[in-house]
């Protein structure tokens, strides 16, 4: 990616500064230097040690911590989820219990209401019956009184008429007066 422009840049100072450095060549390409090959051997040993240290000790340690955290978060989440489920269930139970209680209370109220209505109706009916009986009784009494009054009317009329006739003409003909009154009455 950077190769082309950077190699160009790299070549520029080399061309611009001729001298011992260029004449001597790059130390990296001096393969006669035992140190050059030595660093590759040492590098292999060091890299191998680095790899072993990482794969046996350093990286598993990091992984343990990360796994530990993941399982801990997971278990905490599980606990929280379980608690939430329990709370949900309790809340649902509470709701249903409340609903049931409300239902029961309503039924109770309805029953009491209907009972009260029934007793009130019965009471009213009884009262009405009693009143009706009293009315009928009263009516009978009234009829009796009227009939009595009506039956004693001709008697009163006859005696009044006799008194009047006796006062007017001084005679008393009970028979005649009674028949006359009967005639008028009829």
């Amino acid at each position: 990616m950077y190769r082309t422009p950077r190699l160009f840049l790299f070549a520029a100072p080399l061309a611009a500064v001729p001298g011992r450095a260029v004449a001597a060549g790059m130390p990296q390409l001096n393969f006669h230097d035992p140190l050059l090959i030595g660093q590759v051997v040492w590098g292999a040993v060091i890299f191998g040690g680095f790899y072993l240290g990482l794969s046996r000790f350093a990286l598993p340690r990091v992984e343990r911590v990360l796994t530990n955290r993941r399982t801990r978060i997971q278990s905490d989440l599980d606990v929280a989820r379980k608690a939430k489920a329990e709370a949900d269930r309790a809340s649902a139970e509470l709701l249903s219990a409340r609903h049931e209680a409300a239902e029961q209370a309503r039924a109770h109220v309805e029953r009491i209401q209907s009972e009260a209505r029934a007793s009130a109706d019965a009471h009213a009916a009884e009262t009405a019956k009693r009143l009706e009986a009293e009315i009928a009784n009263a009516e009978t009494r009234i009829t009796q009184s009227r009939e009595q009054a009506l039956s004693s009317l001709s008697e009163i009329a006859t005696s009044t008429t006799q008194d009047l006739v006796a006062r007017l003409i001084g005679t008393q003909d009970e028979q005649t007066v009674a028949s006359a009154v009967k005639r008028v009455n009829a």
Binding site: P34, L35, G38, Q39, W42, G49, G53, A58, L59, V62
Partner: peptide
């Protein structure tokens, strides 16, 4: 031992990384 400053710095680099991981964790 053909031990130049190049392997020395390799050792330093490797030590830094391992110590970083060890102390960090």
């Amino acid at each position: 031992l053909r031990f130049s400053q190049s392997p020395l710095f390799m050792l330093i680099a490797v030590a830094i990384v391992l110590v970083f991981l060890y102390v960090g964790m």
